[in-house]
Amino acid sequence: MFNLIWKDLFIQKKLILLYLAIIGLYFWLGTPLFWLAFITSISFIMNAFYYDEKDNINILLNSLPYTRKQIVTSKYIGAIIFTALFIGVIAGGSFIINGMESPFSWKGVLQTFGLVMAWISLIFPFFYKFKQQYLVIGGIIFFVIAMLSFKAVIHLLKERFGEVVQWFIGLSDLQLYSSASLVILLLYGGSWLLSMRIYERKVF
């Protein structure tokens, strides 16, 4: 199964420079590290998914000695591994440029994982359910939202949901992060099971 995860990296080997360039650009723009890691990880994961759909790769994979469970599982485990890789690269890059001034904090790491996993939990079952054209549309929408929304979302949260945010802020970091982690882990597990069920029934 790790062959399948390695495959997702391998098929994008020519894009790795592009990803590094994007990371450099965002450094220059001063984007928060956790947000940068989130965007690059998601782009990478979704792009691998898109390649598989575009070229009938599901027919190939399902004809090779892999089970459908393994094929889905490789995407869910791969997502975590690739996110960790991007966090590593970005943290390394940040250290080289800024030294220890504004490092990738453990909170930032958790935020990135949380966002990636939440996003995947919601989006993967749809991807498995629907066809390629929806994937492209979904990808474009994601990018537009990701570009525009970061500050707007924070602003909106502060304005409209002040009380909720206050309540959250009232929680200690430990309480906040551990409960959020738990929720996201449950969501991720549920999504994984759902995707497997959808994929098992898929016809090629």
Partner: peptide, 29 residues
């Protein structure tokens, strides 16, 4: 599937990869 070799009527390889790369992907299976 370990014991089956298959050939389909449609392309099932990554269009943008070389045959050498495809082999690298399929071989470990």
């Amino acid at each position: 599937k370990e014991r089956i070799g298959f050939v389909y009527d449609e392309n099932i390889f990554y269009e943008n990869l070389t045959l050498k790369d495809m082999k690298k992907i399929i071989r470990p299976a």
